[in-house]
Amino acid sequence: MIQIKLPEEEIAGVPLRNHMLLAAGILGTTGASLKRMLNLGAGGVVTKSIGPKAIPGHHGPALIPVDGGLINAMGLPNPSKDFVEEIAPLKGEPVVVSIFGGTPEEFGTVASWFPDAAAFELNLSCPHAEGYGASIGVNPRVVRECTEIVKTYNKPVWVKLTPNVTDIKIIGKAAEEGGADAIVAVNTVKAMRISTELRRPVLGNVFGGLSGKAIFPIAVRSVYDLYDAVDIPIIGCGGISSADNVLEMMMAGASAVEIGSAIYDSVNVFSEIAADLYSEDGIPAEEIVGCAHV
């Protein structure tokens, strides 16, 4: 297997310790758990998505392990502005603050609370929160406006996209036009399960989003498409659980990756993958980014 070198420069404006970030929504609710993931080998961490007001999230069941992944409908639970204090001890660390809002103005308000963020990741892609996430992230104009507003806070802006659209390239281009520094692809794939014995949906919210190995091919295809459509870096996300998966994402066009659901199998997934992925005499990652494009 190919091995690569650790990054020597910032990726998408962020000084990552390696090419793998903790994905948004995974162990990102507290400063202490984010710190723990950095200590366990994450090259950077993305926080739980923070919004304009504190919300408790959907009723349970909120997450169900299924064959090949996890289905969740957490419902964007978040402590809102209280999160500023939560991550204050992480100042100077590669912490990307995920934010959401119902309007571009709300995105701007939330961004204004985090002057110490290494970057912002705009959640325009959560598939199970009415009025937020994917329900506005399917509109290219809104995506561009949200990006433009957050960009005024002089931080790198990453825009996380939903795969639940006809053409993800159109949304990616809208983010690029708005000044995005990177595209993160992809968020979860809209999904549900039904209890046949109870004859009713299992998730409290009826439907949710599928993550994990089952969506890896969808994520690879999305990154491959976006690499042809935009000139800014792409962060690959969706079902990555091995060093070979990281390489495959890079060959599709990703400059870095985010890992989330693989935590279900091992909280040490970052150091386990790094042991396989990196070598001092490895090749620079840039040599393989997008190399599969034919």
Binding site: G25, I26, L27, G28, T29, T30, G31, A32, S33, L34, K35, R36, M37, K48, G57, G60, A62, L63, P65, L70, N72, M74, P77, G260, S261, I263, Y264, V267
Partner: peptide, 21 residues
Amino acid sequence: KCAVGVCGSCCMDEHGLRVCK
């Protein structure tokens, strides 16, 4: 919320340990 060590709702300070997992 999740009970399987993924969502982070039950993490405790100061070590960030997950009560569920």
